[in-house]
Deep mutational scan, measured.
Amino acid sequence: VTLFVALYDYEARTEDDLSFHKGSKFQILNSSEGDWWEARSLTTGETGYIPSNYVAPV
């Protein structure tokens, strides 16, 4: 499992996005959609889309 960590805070703009804070960790579920990845937050357990340029591999 590849884990990613948030580099910045992000406020969701749609109900499909995940809001998160810098330092939040994610499991990436689908990275084939270009700049928006489907991810599960390891902090909240919620699933949604995150901007790929806001995260980096742990």
Rank of each mutant, 00 (worst) to 15 (best):
T2R: 12
K25Y: 15
G48I: 04
S24A: 14
V58R: 03
S32K: 10
E38D: 05
G45T: 03
I50E: 00
T47P: 02
I50R: 00
S52E: 04
V58G: 05
S52I: 06
A12C: 05
E46S: 07
F20E: 00
V1G: 14
R13N: 10
Y8V: 06
D35R: 07
L7I: 10
N53F: 11
R13K: 13
N53W: 15
S19Y: 02
G34P: 15
W37H: 03
T44S: 09
S19I: 02
Y54S: 11
E38A: 08
R40N: 04
T43C: 13
E11T: 12
I28T: 01
L29D: 05
S41M: 11
F20N: 00
Y10Q: 01
L18C: 03
T2S: 12
F4I: 04
R13P: 07
F20D: 00
I50G: 01
S31Q: 13
T2M: 13
S31L: 09
P57L: 09
E33N: 15
L3D: 07
A6S: 05
S52V: 08
D17W: 10
Y49K: 13
T43S: 12
T44Y: 03
G45V: 01
L18E: 00
S24R: 03
L42F: 06
G48Y: 03
V58Q: 08
V5D: 03
P51N: 08
G48K: 01
D35A: 10
Y54I: 06
R40Q: 09
A12V: 02
P51I: 03
S52M: 09
E15H: 11
W36L: 07
A6I: 02
V1A: 12
F20G: 00
P57R: 07
Y49Q: 08
P57D: 05
N30I: 06
A12I: 02
P51E: 02
F26Q: 00
T44M: 02
E38V: 15
L42N: 04
Y10F: 09
I50W: 01
D16P: 03
K25S: 07
E15Q: 12
Y10I: 01
S31C: 15
Y54V: 05
V58D: 09
T47S: 08
S19G: 07
E46A: 10
S24C: 14
G45W: 06
D9Y: 04
E11W: 09
N30K: 08
Y8R: 08
N53Q: 11
K25Q: 12
E38L: 15
L7A: 03
L18S: 01
Y10S: 02
W37T: 02
A56E: 11
L18I: 11
Y49W: 15
S19F: 03
E11I: 13
F4K: 02
T47H: 08
D9W: 05
S52F: 07
P57Q: 08
E33M: 14
G48N: 01
V55Q: 00
D17F: 14
V1S: 13
S52A: 13
W36M: 13
T2N: 12
A56M: 10
W37D: 00
P57N: 05
K22C: 08
D17Q: 15
S24K: 03
F4C: 09
V58A: 09
A6T: 03
D16W: 15
F20M: 05
E46T: 07
D16E: 12
T2V: 13
I28K: 04
G34D: 12
F4H: 07
V1Q: 13
S41C: 14
R40V: 12
S19K: 04
L18W: 05
Y10E: 00
P51M: 06
Y49P: 02
N53V: 08
R13Q: 14
A39T: 01
E46H: 09
Y54L: 11
E38P: 06
W37A: 02
D35T: 10
G48Q: 02
I50Y: 00
L29M: 08
S32E: 11
I28L: 06
R40W: 08
E33R: 15
S32F: 10
L18G: 00
E15Y: 09
Y49H: 07
G34W: 09
E46W: 06
S41D: 14
G34Y: 09
H21C: 13
A56I: 12
V55N: 00
I50S: 00
